[in-house]
Each structure stands twice: as C-alpha cells, then as structure tokens.
C-alpha cells in the first residue's frame, strides 16, 4: 500500500510579522492509501489548521507535505483539487445562499472540465442519497443533513481520492449524524477513498477511523491506534485525560 498523505515537520502560522501566531508546531503524520485517519483535540489545538494547510487555505506554512508521492509547494493546481477535496464543518455556512443545488454541482463539474454535467449531477445526488427532486432547491429549502449531503456531493464531484473531513457532523443532530457517518463509510468503500477526519468527538473518530493523532496546543501529542484507544492503552497523560473526559460522558 502506498502513502496517500505524508506530512513532515509542518509548521503553520497565522497573522502578520509582529503578531504572528503559530497554530501548528512541527507536526508529522502519514496516511496510507485507503485508510481513515483521525485528528482529535480540543478547540484551538490546530487540528483543522492542518487540513487548511493541505488544501492551501492557510498559505503560511513550512515543512514538507506530499500527496500521493507528489510534493506540495505553495501553489496548488487543478490536478491537486482533483485528488484532494474537503467537507466543511458547518453545512449552513458552506453552501452559497443564492445558488441552487444544481448550480453548486454544475459549476464544480464544469470547473473540472466534465462534459456530461447533466447526468453527473443526477448521479452525484443519487450517490449521496438525495433524489432528483432536490436538484433545483436552494440551501434554505434544505435541512442541515441534506445540506451536508450536498456539500459531500460537491466534494465528490471531481472524483477525488482523498477526502478531508472537518468535523462533518458536529453541527448536526445525532440521528442525522448517524446517517451522514454511514453515508461517508459507504462512499469510502465504494470509491476507495482515503479519509483524514477532524473531530472533537472521540466516539465519532473511533467509529470512523483506524488510527488517530491526538493534538494539543498545535502539537501532535501522540499517534495512536483506535483499538489501543478503546482499550485505554496510552502512555500520554493528555490522551488519557481526553479519554477519561469522553468516557465519563458515555456512562
């Protein structure tokens, strides 16, 4: 198996010279092709920033990152976006309020140079469990779960190999979360996708991933197998504390 995502000594910064803030410090991780890898930590731990650095949304970084063996520089080209796509946290903010589902998906397909846009839009909607009836609706006519399905369809449009998931269900109700997580699992096995998933909810990460990196204050504290995590086998105090806080709530 080859490596899908490899990150070494990544540092990410925000802000200008005098109030520069380092959001990620010296992070290294690698994700195998077809694997599902989690990033857990509390708010402000830098877990989402890693995703932003990979996609180019956080332009101030150093270190090295490579996707499927291709080293990334500071400029991303279209072939990168055909390989890596992202699903955002808040489905209420990630869809343009004035664009219908059809516009969102057609534009994405056109940008990637697909010809058979019409058929593909229908196929994408079907893939994410929305019928053709949803095609011409606007975001305000959709529920949170339906919006997130549209966002997933948009991410799938370029037929990527890697999906970056930034807390894809934290804004949703638990019953809807279950539907979305099941959908993501199905899509992963159907399309052979690689997941890099950020979440603050250990149970969600444990359900979706095989391995996870625990982050605190911008640093990766530990990379741990989910089986070990479930068994509570960790030698890091912070991981133990996090596990304890989550386990307490699952009494």
């Amino acid at each position: 198996m080859s490596t899908a995502i490899s990150i070494e000594n990544l540092n990410v910064y925000f802000g200008e010279h005098h109030d520069l803030f380092q959001a990620v410090k010296n992070a290294s991780l690698s994700v195998e092709q077809g694997a599902s890898f989690g990033l857990v930590g509390e708010s402000g731990s830098g877990k989402s920033t890693i995703l932003k650095a990979i996609t180019g949304l956080a332009p101030q970084w150093d270190g090295s990152m490579s996707i499927e063996g291709n080293t990334l520089n500071h400029k991303r080209d279209r072939s990168f976006y055909k390989t890596v796509q992202m699903v955002f946290q808040d489905p209420y903010a990630s869809l343009h309020p004035r664009h219908s589902v059809d516009q969102v998906l057609s534009e994405t397909l056109q940008l990637h140079g697909f010809r058979d846009v019409n058929d593909r839009v229908n196929k994408l909607l079907e893939d994410v469990g929305l019928g053709p009836a949803f095609r011409f609706r606007y975001p305000h006519q959709l529920s949170g779960g339906q919006r997130q399905r549209v966002a997933i369809a948009r991410a799938l449009a370029p037929e990527p190999d890697i999906l970056l998931l930034d807390e894809p269900t934290s804004a949703l109700d638990v019953s809807v979360q279950a539907e979305i997580l099941n959908l993501l699992s199905d899509l992963r096995s159907e399309h052979g996708l690689t997941f890099l998933m950020v979440s603050h909810d250990l149970a969600v990460v444990a359900h979706m991933c095989e391995r996870a990196a625990v982050m605190q204050k911008g640093e990766i504290v530990e990379v741990i197998d989910i089986a070990d995590m479930r068994a509570g086998k960790t030698n890091q105090d912070y991981t133990a504390k996090l596990l304890d806080a989550s386990a307490n709530r699952v009494a």
Partner: peptide
C-alpha cells in the same frame, strides 16, 4: 472568509 468561498476555491476557481 466564508466556507462557501473556500469551497469553490478548492474546486480551482
């Protein structure tokens, strides 16, 4: 700075 602009940027727009 909204997510939907980030999303379309991630499509290479």
């Amino acid at each position: 700075s909204s997510d939907y602009i980030s999303a379309i940027r991630l499509q290479g727009a």
